[in-house]
Each structure stands twice: as C-alpha cells, then as structure tokens.
Amino acid sequence: MSEEIVFKVLKEAGKPLRPGDIAKIAGLDKKEVSEAIKKLKKEGKIISPKRCYYAPAE
C-alpha cells in the first residue's frame, strides 16, 4: 500500500525525487519508502534517471 502512495507522489511531483523527499511529502517512514521503491523498480513502474533519484517510468 505504501507503493501506491510513493508512486502517486512521484507522478504528481513531475520531477525525479530522492527517497527522503518522497518520505517527507508522503508522510511515510524512510524505510517504508525504500521498500516501496524496491518493489516498484522490480515491477518496472519507476526508474532511476540518476543516482539516488527516482521517477515514474513513462
């Protein structure tokens, strides 16, 4: 469920974000965000355009 929140935050941001920023915006724990990012990357829903930044895969 935190994956949905993380994905929504990334889509609405319109720019690549760091996990810490995602956590702040979503009001989630950094650990939760990291887990969600891991799952979303595995599913191919998000990409990392540059080191430590994440964006939705278009």
Rank of each mutant, 00 (worst) to 15 (best):
K31F: 11
I37L: 15
G44L: 12
S48Y: 08
R18N: 04
K8R: 14
E58P: 15
C52V: 12
K30A: 05
K50Q: 07
E3V: 05
L40C: 07
K11T: 15
D21Y: 01
P19V: 01
A55V: 01
Y53T: 15
D29L: 00
L28C: 10
I46V: 14
I37T: 08
K11S: 14
S2D: 15
P56F: 14
I22S: 09
G27K: 08
A57F: 12
S48M: 12
K11N: 13
F7R: 12
M1R: 11
A26W: 03
Y53P: 01
I25G: 00
K30T: 12
K50L: 05
I46P: 05
K45D: 03
C52I: 10
S2H: 13
A57H: 13
F7P: 02
I25Y: 01
K15A: 09
E3G: 05
S34Y: 05
L17W: 06
I22Q: 10
K39P: 02
Y53D: 00
A57N: 15
A26Y: 04
E35W: 12
S34D: 04
G14R: 07
K31L: 12
E32F: 00
P16N: 05
L17G: 03
A57S: 14
K39R: 14
G44D: 06
L17D: 03
A55P: 00
I47K: 11
E3P: 07
E43K: 15
G27F: 08
F7D: 08
E43G: 04
I46C: 09
K8E: 14
I25A: 01
K42P: 04
V9C: 02
K42I: 08
K41W: 04
I5N: 06
I37P: 10
E58L: 12
P56A: 14
V6K: 09
I22A: 08
Y53W: 13
K8W: 00
K24L: 10
P19D: 01
A13K: 01
E3Q: 14
G44K: 13
K11M: 13
A55G: 00
A57M: 11
S34W: 02
I37R: 11
K50I: 06
Y54H: 13
G20A: 08
